[in-house]
Amino acid sequence: MRPAYDTLRAMLTTINFVAGVLFCCLFWLLAGDAVTEMLRPRPVMEQKAYRPGTGGGGEPEEKVTNGIHDATGLIFAEGFEAVRGNCTACHSAKLITQNRATAAGWTEIIRWMQATQNLHDLGENEEIIVKYLATNYAPEDVGRRAGLDVESIEWYLLELE
């Protein structure tokens, strides 16, 4: 009785092995490309250190066109490095360029970020940042044109021939 048991066990082992090989082949046919893609090593992106004060000296991320820093869209002026280093570390520069405020308004925005968004203490950079923002992103008197003074308009009749 023992030889029949050993034979059955050997057959089941062989069947399991063949089933495993077939399963692996089927899996490779269906998902082989995805698995190969996942296992392929990815190139490591080189990080370039920011060099303050380069002023658009050739590297694409430092290029300035018409006074606007190309990579961020911020006005390239005194205090730019402090704003980029402190503000754009947490949010996009677009959040700055789409807003306008006075020095008091920008200070209030900074206080709000410190109270609700965990912004760190800016120390002596705060004065530089607020001055930059208030100078370059101050409120503008832009909007609808002033209403017409109908009383002062000199009206005339158009004569058609």
Rank of each mutant, 00 (worst) to 15 (best):
R2I: 04
R2P: 05
P3K: 14
A4E: 14
A4R: 11
Y5C: 13
Y5P: 04
D6A: 14
A10H: 04
M11R: 15
M11A: 14
L12V: 08
L12P: 00
L12T: 09
T14H: 04
N16P: 10
F17G: 12
F17N: 09
F17Y: 08
F17P: 00
V18P: 05
A19T: 10
A19R: 10
G20I: 05
L22K: 04
L22D: 03
F23E: 04
C25S: 13
L26V: 09
F27Q: 13
F27L: 15
F27V: 14
L29F: 15
L30K: 06
A31K: 07
A31Y: 08
G32N: 02
V35D: 05
M38V: 09
M38T: 09
M38F: 11
L39N: 03
L39Q: 06
R40S: 09
R40Y: 04
P41E: 07
P43F: 01
P43L: 03
V44L: 14
M45Y: 08
M45S: 11
E46W: 00
E46G: 01
E46P: 00
Q47T: 10
Q47K: 05
K48C: 00
Y50R: 10
G53M: 01
G53V: 02
T54S: 05
G55S: 06
G56E: 01
P60I: 07
E62I: 00
E62H: 02
K63H: 05
T65I: 05
G67R: 03
I68K: 07
I68P: 07
H69A: 00
D70P: 00
A71M: 03
A71F: 01
A77H: 08
A77M: 04
A77I: 03
E78G: 13
E78Q: 13
G79D: 04
F80A: 06
F80L: 07
A82H: 01
V83F: 06
R84F: 03
R84A: 03
C87N: 06
A89E: 11
A93S: 15
A93H: 03
K94A: 10
I96N: 05
I96L: 13
A101T: 03
T102S: 15
T102H: 10
T102N: 08
W106Y: 10
W106N: 10
W106S: 06
W112N: 12
M113D: 07
M113Y: 08
Q114A: 13
Q114S: 14
A115T: 11
T116C: 07
T116E: 15
Q117N: 09
N118L: 08
L119E: 11
L119Y: 05
L119T: 01
D121Y: 09
D121I: 14
E124A: 13
E124G: 06
E127I: 03
E127N: 12
I128H: 03
I128K: 15
K131N: 15
K131D: 15
Y132W: 08
L133N: 09
T135Y: 09
Y137R: 12
P139D: 02
P139Y: 00
E140L: 15
D141F: 12
G143Q: 05
R144V: 14
R145A: 14
R145C: 11
A146P: 07
A146K: 13
L148F: 12
V150D: 14
S152V: 06
I153N: 01
E154Q: 15
W155H: 09
L157T: 10
L158I: 12
L158F: 13
E159V: 12
L160H: 05
